[in-house]
Amino acid sequence: MDIFLQQLINGLTVGSIYALIALGYTMVYGILRLINFAHGDLAILGAFIGLTVITGLAGSGGAPANWIVIVAFVLAVLVVAIAGVLLEFTAYRPLRNAHRLSAVVSALGASMFIQNGIMLIWSPQTLTFPEGIMPQTTYNFGSVVISATQIFIVTVSLLLMLALYLYVNKTRFGTAIRAAAIDQDAARLMGINVNKVITSVFILGPALGAIGGLFIGVYYRQAVFDMGWIYGLNAFIAAIIGGIGNIPGAMIGGLLLGLFSSLASGYISSTWQQAIVFGLLILILMVRPTGILGERVADKV
């Protein structure tokens, strides 16, 4: 039972990170029907920027002050959001009316570019985060351990998701985003600036992704240039499980995937964890390809 609870806590933490990153995939897919393969790499770019800020400002030795950590998050979000907008502008916008797969290949190229850019700027080796970025407190319940970091990650993630949900569902611009996701042409006719909506999605998605990426960094205390691919892929799987194009779906999918993969590695096999996750994905695709909450894309005869 204790192992179960411990895996549940760990899964919830990872799951909320997946959910943050999944939101970026699902928002872009919802509007452009494009799998943004570079999104995971953008998230990890956030981790590296955060790492540089923290080590740069705190120097070596000693725990970094709280304000440094906040600055790290803010800068990671800013830089990655700008990168996201640039990415859309240079690699995707020119291909908006082209064959869908041209944009997919462009996205794959962008992923490779960002990944290797990170490697050249930082390092081909795994970099470690200094100790004490997050409070070191842990809470013990029997043999179940919950760290303050985990509480922080889950709480902040849930708050961000709630904020995004409210933004998309309760504000005027959020309505425009939803309208563009349902029918771009109709939205345009209704006077919605679809380009602005797309740009905003490439700000919001990467910004949330950067926070997710930096969470990965401070949680595992390490970052390596090519980890965007596996985290990105898992987040994308989460988006599909929830129903791609569906914002609450991405949140639920992320949490479920985190729990599932954590339990799978605890109870079945940690070596096969990733294969089990893919197995689950394939099973879901066979049984209910539209995911838990369904998707907005419908084929019309």
Binding site: T90, S106, L120
Partner: peptide, 11 residues
């Protein structure tokens, strides 16, 4: 890096 960039540019 060049490879990735080339994929974008060609597309």
């Amino acid at each position: 890096l060049v490879f990735g960039l080339a994929m974008i540019v060609v597309m």
